[in-house]
């Protein structure tokens, strides 16, 4: 994998911004940057492990049962991630709530398992998982930074602008839609500018 492909996977082919995969956690757990960081770490770990397992077993599993098998593999790793988080960090487990077990049905992970890992070698699948995971992390951090900065006037729990009333609406569900729309708008604007420069 070249540096250009690596960068393209993170920005030009970002799973959240370009193909709107994994938007559910991008909306639900981006109230603070710490939650977004933990969620993206878990998604990246499950993505890497499941991509590797699906790639290793790609020649052993019959085509007609490949999707149920992939879902079983992903569910096992998502359950592991849920148990580990519950055991090691109950605070984050409570903060992320149902969205950690729901990693098992994250369409981003299912997509990469079926579209890439089931057709490629283990090392390539692992690299793909890392690149897509970093892209997902960038998207979640961008949304959560806007929500935490303007919704709480803080970053990573540290107060940035003290003594003022923050825009609390940004920490609610509708604020998640607004922040994602803003980040998507910025992304599309920069991608359009880049396209014009190339033309």
């Amino acid at each position: 994998m070249t540096a250009g492909e690596f960068g393209r996977g993170i920005f030009a082919q970002n799973p959240v911004f370009r193909v709107a995969l994994g938007v559910c956690p991008a909306l639900a757990v981006t109230a603070t940057m710490a939650d977004a960081l933990v969620m993206s770490g878990l998604v990246m770990a499950v993505l890497a492990a499941s991509n590797l397992a699906v790639s290793i077993t790609r020649n052993l599993i019959a085509q007609r049962v490949r999707i149920p098998c992939q879902i079983l593999i992903i569910t096992a790793f998502a359950s592991m991630a849920n148990m580990l988080l519950l055991n090691r960090s109950p605070h984050f487990s409570a903060a992320l709530g149902i969205y950690v077990p729901l990693i098992a049905v994250n369409c981003l992970i299912l997509n990469r398992a079926d579209a890439f890992a089931a057709k490629n070698k283990p090392i390539a699948s692992l690299l793909d998982a890392i690149v897509v995971g970093i892209g997902f992390t960038v998207a979640l951090l961008a949304c959560s930074m806007i929500r935490e900065l303007f919704g709480n006037f803080s970053l990573m729990g540290q107060k940035v602008i003290p003594g003022h009333q923050p825009f609390l609406a940004l920490t609610t569900a509708c604020g998640a839609f607004f922040s994602l729309a803003f980040v998507l708008g910025l992304y599309n604007y920069f991608m359009a500018q880049k396209g014009k420069e190339k033309a």
């Binding site: 599993i61 019959a62 049962v65 593999i73 096992a76 359950s79 148990m83």
Partner: peptide
Amino acid sequence: KSALAMMGVAVFAGMLIILT
């Protein structure tokens, strides 16, 4: 073959969860 593959994956997934 398909049934065996699914059983194998189910056993692998179960073992992973039980061991964790």
